[in-house]
Simulated assay, not measured.
Amino acid sequence: MIEHIYQYYQSEQNTAYIAAAIGMVFLASTFILFQYFENDRLIKGLSYVFCIAGLFFLTAGISVAIHNDRKMEEVKLSSLTNMELYKSETERMELVIQKGYRSALFLFSSLVVAGLVVLLISPNDLWKGIGLGLLIIGTIGHGTEAFSMQKNKAYQQKIDSINVQNI
């Protein structure tokens, strides 16, 4: 059971590194856009959002990677029996699947809606750029959450399929 849990946290850590890489891409995009299109107000608005999103994804990715590194160490040092680990992991994954994504999905959905509203209503190019940026970030956020949800559901199915008698 320890191997399954360890692999789960290792997979989550790898996903966190992907989020950090996405953050670095947004920050690099900000720099490149400012270098070549500094006078374009639409690009300037887009760059502002990319900069903030880049810092968010980078910080969140690094924080989650560090957290998962600690969890991997805890799992390796666990003194619980396989049956106790199975029970606690099953309960934990049920919570993750039921409640773990609510706030992120709300955040990214709000960004998509806000981006659409600002993009469609604002006559100002700077604000259109901000709206476009919010729309892009919200969409990418939904994509990363969908990827994470699929991985967690697959892990939950893997844990659920373990024959409790063989633990």
Rank of each mutant, 00 (worst) to 15 (best):
L95H: 12
E91P: 04
I140H: 02
P123W: 07
L42N: 12
N14D: 15
L132A: 14
S110M: 06
D40F: 07
V117W: 02
L46D: 02
G143V: 04
R102E: 10
T59G: 10
Y6A: 09
S47V: 04
V64I: 13
N68R: 09
F50V: 01
T30G: 12
I22R: 02
I136Q: 07
S63P: 00
L120S: 14
T15Y: 10
I43K: 01
V164L: 08
I62K: 05
A146L: 13
S148A: 15
K151Q: 11
I66S: 08
L55W: 02
I5P: 03
R102Q: 12
I137K: 04
E84K: 14
N39L: 11
K71A: 13
Q7F: 03
Y8D: 05
F26H: 12
K71W: 04
A53L: 03
I66W: 06
Y48F: 13
L27H: 05
A65Q: 03
Y9M: 10
Y155G: 00
I66L: 12
A19S: 11
C51I: 05
K87L: 13
A114R: 01
G141W: 00
V96F: 01
E38F: 09
I66C: 05
T139I: 12
I66V: 13
M93L: 05
F37Y: 15
E12A: 14
K44R: 14
I5W: 00
A16W: 00
G129I: 05
H67Q: 14
Y6H: 14
S78F: 06
Y86V: 06
E94C: 03
G61T: 01
K158P: 01
L120I: 08
V164R: 07
Y6E: 12
S78V: 06
M24A: 12
Y6S: 09
I2F: 12
S161H: 00
Y9T: 09
P123L: 08
E74I: 05
L119G: 09
S110Q: 03
V113M: 10
I97V: 14
E89Y: 10
I162Q: 01
K158G: 04
F147Q: 15
T15E: 13
L105Q: 14
G133W: 01
I159H: 01
K128L: 10
L58V: 05
V75D: 06
Y8P: 06
K44F: 10
Y8A: 07
